[in-house]
Every structure is written in C-alpha cells, then in structure tokens.
Simulated scan of single mutants.
Amino acid sequence: MDKFTSLTGIAAPLKIANVDTDKIIPARYLKTIKRTGLGEGLFAGMRYRDDGSEEPDFILNKPAYRKAQILVAEDNFGCGSSREHAPWALLDFGIRCVISTSFADIFYNNCFKNGILPITVAKDDLEKLMDDADRGSNATITIDLENQVIQGPDGGTLPFDIDPFRKHCMLNGLDDIGLTLEKSGNVEAFEQKLGAERPWL
C-alpha cells in the first residue's frame, strides 16, 4: 500500500447524499478480483449515458475535475453493500482522499485498508470545502496527514481528527499484510523456539 503523508490536488464536489457502493461501482463491474481497471466503472451510472457516451454534466467528466484526487461528498458516503471494489475504483481513478460529514462503517474501514484517507468534518466545514471545490481547476486543496490539517486554496486551514493507529498505518503504507510482516522477526523467533522445544511438530 502506498504511503499517505500529504496530498495536494484538485478537489471535486459531489453534491449528492447517501452515495452507496453500487453508485460508486455498479455490480456489473464486480466480476474481477483485480484492483486495476475499475476506475473506468467509477460512478458509471452517473458518468455514462445509456449509449456509453459520457454524461457531460457529471462532475468528474468536466475538464477541471478529470484528474481530481480529492472528493468532497455529502452525508453518508459509501453506504450500501460492503464491496471492497468501491475503494478500489476510487483509487484506480486517482482519488486518494474523500471528505464527508459521515461514512458507512465498512466503506470507511475499507478505505484505510486500501490507501484512501476518509476524513470526517462538521457540516459547516463541509460547506466551506464544497465552496472551495466549486472553483474548478483552482480548487487545489492540501491534506497534511502528519499535522492533521486541510488547507484550502486561499491558505485557510481546517484541523481534522483521525485514530492514531490508522494514522500510523497510512503514514507508513501499512495494510493488514504489512502490519503482519512488521512482526515477521517475532514470528520466526517463535517458530525456531517451538521447533527446538517440540521437534515432533
């Protein structure tokens, strides 16, 4: 998993509440277990018309937001089924951070396991960030995880909270496998000791 220390990028405003995981990545894209290639299906029901052409009014199809790395979303983002393909699709598109007032628990946990930083902010603060994101290509926001601060395009800052353990994992690029590998020395020592004490095992 890639480390997340700080990120400066375009923020796209997604002014829709209760965006469920089926909206993030429709079920027809769940046939693969690969993490790559899913960015094409991100928000497919909203990004594409029935004939497969792009819906020009959808935010990520607008020229200013095609390379957005931050998503500013309304309440209850990531609700619905527990598909891990949802953060995979966001990440494959290029989204490394999602900011909202609330997240569904499973989606929230899956983000951390895949290198996406979900940030929860108050409603008033979300409105300010939406205003910043509305600036199009000038909507550059910096996420400083080390100092737990969001910096807007005008230089204003907004602190955010994060669990210390999750912060450690993100800063060091540790998913569940990485956390286990950190203990590989202890595991090997235990196995050697066990082998010496109980060679018949």
Rank of each mutant, 00 (worst) to 15 (best):
P87V: 15
R166Y: 15
L90K: 09
M1Q: 05
L145N: 06
D132Y: 14
F77W: 15
G155Q: 08
F77K: 09
E74G: 00
I119T: 05
I25A: 00
A104V: 14
T8I: 07
K62Y: 15
T101A: 05
L194N: 09
A73T: 13
I141Q: 04
D132T: 06
A189D: 08
D22I: 04
V19F: 10
G45Q: 04
Y48Q: 01
A122N: 04
E127Q: 11
R47F: 07
D154P: 00
F4L: 10
N147G: 01
G136K: 14
K183S: 07
K3L: 08
D175T: 01
I162S: 07
L179F: 04
Q148W: 07
L179P: 05
L7A: 04
A64M: 10
P118I: 02
C111R: 08
K113I: 12
G41W: 12
L181C: 06
W200K: 10
M170H: 09
K34W: 03
T21F: 13
K167A: 11
E74A: 02
G115L: 09
I119M: 11
E182I: 04
K123T: 12
L60D: 07
I70R: 03
K62W: 15
N76I: 12
G195M: 11
F93V: 14
L14I: 13
T101R: 10
T36A: 07
K3G: 02
F43Y: 14
P164M: 11
D134M: 10
Q148F: 06
A17R: 07
Y48D: 03
R35E: 14
F43G: 00
L7S: 03
G78N: 09
N110V: 13
I143H: 06
I59A: 01
T36E: 08
K193P: 01
Y65V: 10
L90R: 10
F4V: 04
K167C: 11
F77I: 11
I33K: 08
E146Y: 01
P159I: 05
F43K: 00
L194S: 07
N18Q: 11
E197V: 11
G185S: 04
L7M: 09
K62D: 10
R135A: 08
F58Y: 11
E40R: 01
F43D: 04
P199Q: 13
Q148A: 10
E74V: 01
I150Q: 03
E191D: 03
P63G: 02
M130L: 13
S6A: 01
V121T: 05
G94I: 15
G195C: 01
L117Y: 09
L201W: 14
V149E: 08
V121Y: 14
M1C: 02
F165I: 14
C97R: 07
T120Q: 13
R28Q: 12
P159L: 01
